[in-house]
Computed example of a mutant assay.
Amino acid sequence: MKKLLLLISLLSVSFALFAQESGGVEMATELRSSGKIYVVVSVLVVIFIGLAFYLFSMDNRLKKIEKLQK
C-alpha cells in the first residue's frame, strides 16, 4: 500500500513538472529589462522589514505582560 501511494505521488509530481513552461516569465523579463524589478524588490524588502519590526515589538510587549502577571 505504501509503495502504491509513493508511486502515485511521484507520478503526480512528474506530471506537474511537465506542465511548466521553459520560456520563462514574460513579466519578469520585462521588469528586469526596464529596471523596475529593483523597485519591486525594494518594496518587498521594506514590507518584510516592517513585518519583522512589528513582530519583534509585539514579542517584547508580550514578554513585559507575562512578567507583570508573574
Rank of each mutant, 00 (worst) to 15 (best):
V46A: 15
K36H: 09
G23K: 04
M58C: 06
L62R: 10
I8F: 04
Y54S: 09
L5V: 05
Y38L: 14
I49H: 02
M27L: 13
I8W: 09
F48C: 12
M1H: 09
F18M: 01
I37Y: 01
F15Y: 12
K36C: 06
S57L: 11
G50Q: 03
A28E: 01
F56T: 03
K2N: 08
L62T: 07
S42C: 00
D59N: 13
A28V: 13
A16T: 09
V39G: 15
I65W: 13
A19Q: 02
R32M: 15
G24I: 09
A52C: 04
M58A: 05
V46R: 06
K64N: 15
E21D: 01
F18C: 01
S9W: 03
G23N: 12
V45E: 12
L31D: 00
S57H: 08
E30T: 13
A16P: 01
S57W: 13
A19H: 00
L17Y: 05
G35P: 00
G23Q: 02
L68T: 02
I49F: 13
Y38Q: 04
G50E: 03
L4P: 00
F56E: 09
I65V: 14
F18N: 11
Y38W: 12
K64S: 11
E26L: 11
L5H: 11
V43M: 06
V40P: 00
E66Q: 07
V45H: 05
S57V: 11
F18H: 10
V43Y: 01
L62Q: 02
K2A: 09
L51K: 02
L31T: 05
S9C: 10
L4V: 14
F56G: 07
K64Q: 10
I49W: 09
A28G: 01
L7G: 15
L6K: 07
E66T: 10
S22Y: 12
E30F: 07
L17H: 04
S22M: 14
